[in-house]
């Protein structure tokens, strides 16, 4: 297919306890800032920027992230991913992530806001060693239209594939088409407007850990509704419905804090940028 609108390749390694970029390459409408070290764990935090301000008709973005042995990285965006109307060709983003032995990646992009008549497709492919750790989340908002109408986008499709030692272990596929589906209704968003998903893969996760997580989260609130379940490999997935990005972020940050404090004795910094 055609040219990329934006490309980012980032290869990071662990140099005496500190994660540093071995290679960074970006081009077009993708950019990363210099890494920030939020604490003295050596974990690098990269902010991804889209200088164009949003995805346009036919835009295609490619990201390749590789963490070498024992490298630790947080990757996030500087703001919401906005997809404007795409009258001719859908906007597309693909991400390829390689996690080598003992490496740790947190990838927490900001929410996706698809504008009226936008068609967006996203594919994340993660190849990981069984000793590596992955924390991933995404949030799909009801989008934006000038009249304030919800779910006015054409299609939002998100596919996550995770391979462990070369074998498929997670296949997570959502395709929201408001014109053909009653998105607010039964079986879809059950009356909520925002959909959050989180996937955590780590060899330390077991049923007892999931039970603790379950009781940590508020089960009786009307602000959100969640489900969590163990994967077929040590790890779990979470889905959250709510009516705001903040409610979903609150759930994810509770999970993130628990993991960071129990496993790494780190109190996570807020990644919020505003």
């Amino acid at each position: 297919m055609g040219e990329w609108t934006g490309v980012l390749h980032l290869n990071a390694e662990n140099r005496q306890g500190k994660t540093v970029a071995k290679n960074v390459y970006f081009q077009g409408a993708f950019k990363v800032m210099r890494p920030i070290y939020h604490d003295n764990s050596g974990r690098a935090c990269y902010y991804l920027l889209n200088p164009g301000g949003g995805y346009l008709d036919g835009d295609r973005y490619q990201m390749k992230i590789c963490l070498e042995e024992n490298a630790q990285l947080t990757l996030t965006t500087q703001g919401a991913t906005k997809v404007y109307k795409t009258p001719k060709q859908y906007a597309y983003q693909e991400t390829e992530i390689h996690l080598q032995a003992g490496s740790y990646l947190e990838y927490f992009p900001d929410p996706l806001i698809a504008y009226q008549n936008a068609h967006y497709k996203q594919k994340n492919v993660i190849q990981m060693d069984r000793s590596a750790t992955l924390l991933y989340s995404d949030i799909i908002t009801p989008g934006w239209s000038p009249e304030g109408e919800r779910f006015s986008y054409k299609t939002v499709q998100v596919l996550n594939e995770i391979y462990m030692d070369g074998e498929l272990v997670v296949y997570d596929h959502l395709k929201l088409k408001p014109a053909n589906q009653n998105l607010a209704g039964l079986g879809f968003m059950e009356g909520f407007t925002h959909l959050g998903s989180m996937i955590v893969v780590d060899k330390k996760i077991n049923n007892a850990f999931l039970d603790e997580l379950y009781y940590l989260l508020d089960q009786n609130t009307f602000d959100y509704r969640f489900g969590l379940s163990l994967l077929s490999v040590p790890g779990f997935t979470v889905r959250v419905f709510s009516n705001s990005t903040q409610d979903i972020e609150k759930v994810f940050s509770q999970i993130h804090s628990k993991i960071s404090q129990e496993w790494y004795q780190i109190k996570p910094n807020s990644l919020r940028k505003y």
Partner: peptide, 12 residues
């Protein structure tokens, strides 16, 4: 493998 998020959440 496209799923209906509500039905999937209720299965969880």
């Amino acid at each position: 493998g496209i799923v209906s998020p509500g039905i999937e959440l209720s299965q969880m």
